[in-house]
């Protein structure tokens, strides 16, 4: 790649990464809005999450007496690791150099890094809730992560590559093919996304004081900018999963060259896909009730089963003699 093109590619990668943090609150706002409408409420404005973040950022930050330095480091690590993971998922354009830093497995690893520190931060203050949240989070993730990796392996084995870009280009080049394995992988990834982002059948994002909380229990002691970073990271994570599902399974529309037109079209396409996914999420959360904690393993076992069937149906049905 010539130097000039390389430079512009890095610039676009940087812009795309910034777009992730910029768009993440919007997606949450959209989901909440749709949900409110479904419940016959008017709901908060679409941009409310931005206002919330801003409020948290300018507020005073409190740290418990019993907290160690890790408590203050964790929000930065969680935010940065999640962001870096997101930045490697193609949002508007393919062939960006940043995607080569990390393939899908590294992406899963970065999310695991963020989760590791999130759980540690929950245990740091030494309250009962923090430990509870950390323990449950590790239970959920220890079942969700293999399902996610297996779903991703299905895609990787089809494209013979673990790079997200190659998976998407391979999919685009093949045109419209009905792959049973993709269907299963999509199902698995949807379930995993619900579990990992703390959405409704597994965790309730709207709760603050409930014995069943998971994600919120780990953040109880955070305030001010630390809380803002943690919340923002969670929003980026939701966006990441949304883009992953939207762009990997339905890659059509993503920009393949670095012209303003292609990039603009890519942005429009991904926004449309995300709006649809967000609405679907809102409807699902509206229809489904939260499960008790020990039903969650069954939910995730279904994800594992789907991912496993995806792999098997790839091996059995899609590879010839």
């Amino acid at each position: 790649m010539p130097d000039g093109l390389m430079l512009s590619a890095w610039l676009i990668a940087l812009l795309q990464a910034l777009l992730y943090v910029a768009l993440a609150p919007l997606l949450i706002g959209w989901v909440r809005k749709v949900k409110a409408r479904l419940q016959n409420r008017r709901g908060a404005p679409l941009l409310q999450p931005y206002a919330d973040l801003r409020k948290l950022l300018i507020k005073e930050t409190r740290v418990p007496h019993t907290a160690s330095p890790l408590f203050r480091m964790a929000p930065y690590i969680v935010f940065v690791a999640t962001w870096l993971a997101a930045a490697t998922v193609p949002l508007v354009a393919l062939d960006l150099p940043i995607a080569r830093i990390a393939d899908i497995i590294v992406l899963v690893g970065l999310l695991a890094l963020a989760r590791f520190f999130l759980a540690l931060a929950g245990m740091d203050v030494g309250t009962a809730f923090g430990g509870m949240g950390a323990s449950r989070e590790m239970l959920i993730s220890s079942l969700a992560e293999p399902a996610m990796l297996m779903a991703v392996f299905t895609l990787a084995m089809t494209a013979h590559s673990t790079s997200l870009e190659s998976v998407m280009s391979h999919h685009l080049a093949d045109g419209f093919v009905l792959r049973p394995s993709y269907l299963f992988a999509l199902g698995a990834l949807l379930l995993v996304a619900l579990a990992e982002c703390g959405r409704i059948p597994v965790d309730n994002p709207a709760t603050h004081l409930e014995l069943t909380m998971i994600h919120e229990a780990m953040l109880l002691e955070y305030s001010g900018r630390h809380l803002a970073l943690m919340e923002w990271a969670a929003q980026v994570k939701l966006l990441l999963y949304g883009v992953l599902i939207a762009n990997v399974f339905f890659p059509w529309g993503v920009g393949r060259e670095f012209t303003p037109l292609a990039l603009g079209l890519g942005l429009l396409a991904v926004l449309a896909k995300l709006a649809l996914l967000g609405a679907a999420l809102a409807i699902a959360e509206h229809v489904v009730a939260k499960m008790r904690l020990f039903r969650a393993p069954a939910f995730l076992n279904l994800a594992l089963l789907l991912a496993l069937l995806g792999l098997l149906s790839h091996v059995i049905l899609e590879i010839g003699a």
Binding site: R62, V63, P64, H65, A67, R72, V125, L220, E221
Partner: peptide, 8 residues
């Protein structure tokens, strides 16, 4: 940053 008791 202000130090305070844990909320819990």
């Amino acid at each position: 940053i202000r130090r305070s008791d844990p909320w819990d």
